[in-house]
């Protein structure tokens, strides 16, 4: 029996995967209880760009049915369907809370980044460029606050993550106000990626 790979959890009344939906390594995606799964050849899943895209494509297909899923983190395999169902049942209340949190919502992502490369031509130049980048990052964080303020009640929840030269804003947005959200985004001349499944707004831990 092949191991079972988990993509996402869906609401009990959510539609089944469309027949042509394929996941990791071309595996056919099927519904298992409230989960979308496929068979995989091994319980150890190598993280490649292709597989990460495949995982996200399945979760996006679930979102595309009109019912918002709770995405699963990449790489979760189970010995068989029974083990997968048991793992979901063990966290049934948490999953219900997670589904309720994101019902009717999508995630939008605003990516802000600095364009100040680090200069390693000398020690002094490196420190100076590091200082410039830190200043630019402070400006990005300030810009993020302004963006959130201007989006206002278009956003149900917001999460911010800072990385190397980047600030990422994740927004949980009701499907019904997505047009208004995008209008406000365009008015600020920033770019938003999405809609995507709500990876950043999972069940309470």
């Amino acid at each position: 029996m092949s191991p079972t790979y988990l993509y996402c959890l869906t609401a009990p009344a959510a539609p089944d995967p469309p027949p042509a939906t394929v996941g990791l390594d071309g595996g056919v995606v099927r519904r298992l209880g409230d989960a979308w799964v496929s068979d995989v050849s091994s319980r150890s899943v190598k993280a490649t760009v292709e597989r990460i895209r495949a995982h996200d494509a399945v979760v996006s297909a679930a979102l595309g049915t009109g019912s918002t899923p709770v995405p699963a983190r990449f790489g979760q395999t189970f010995a068989d369907d029974n083990e997968c169902v048991a793992a979901i049942s063990a966290k049934k209340e948490t999953m219900s809370a997670g589904l309720a949190r994101v019902a009717g919502m999508v995630e939008m992502t605003v990516l802000l980044h600095v364009s100040t490369p680090l200069d390693s031509s000398s020690g002094t130049a490196y420190l100076a460029s590091l200082s410039r980048r830190e200043h630019a990052m402070d400006e990005l964080r300030a810009a993020a606050r302004v963006i959130n303020a201007r989006l206002g009640d278009c956003v149900r929840e917001s999460a911010e993550r800072a990385g190397e030269g980047t600030v990422t804003l994740s927004h949980l947005v009701e499907r019904e106000v997505l047009t208004m959200y995008m209008d406000r985004i365009r008015a600020m001349e920033v770019r938003a990626v999405g809609p995507s499944a709500p990876y950043s707004f999972g069940p309470p831990e």
Binding site: A47, T48, I52, R53, P71, F78, A87, T109, R161, T168
Partner: peptide
């Protein structure tokens, strides 16, 4: 955008399995 996608799929999302094994083998990644 790709970097953000990788970050979300690998580091976000609900964890149900006690046996999450991610093998890191793709040099481009």
């Amino acid at each position: 955008v790709l970097s953000d996608l990788i970050s979300r799929v690998l580091d976000k999302g609900v964890v149900l399995s006690g046996d999450v094994v991610i093998s890191i083998a793709d040099i481009d990644l």
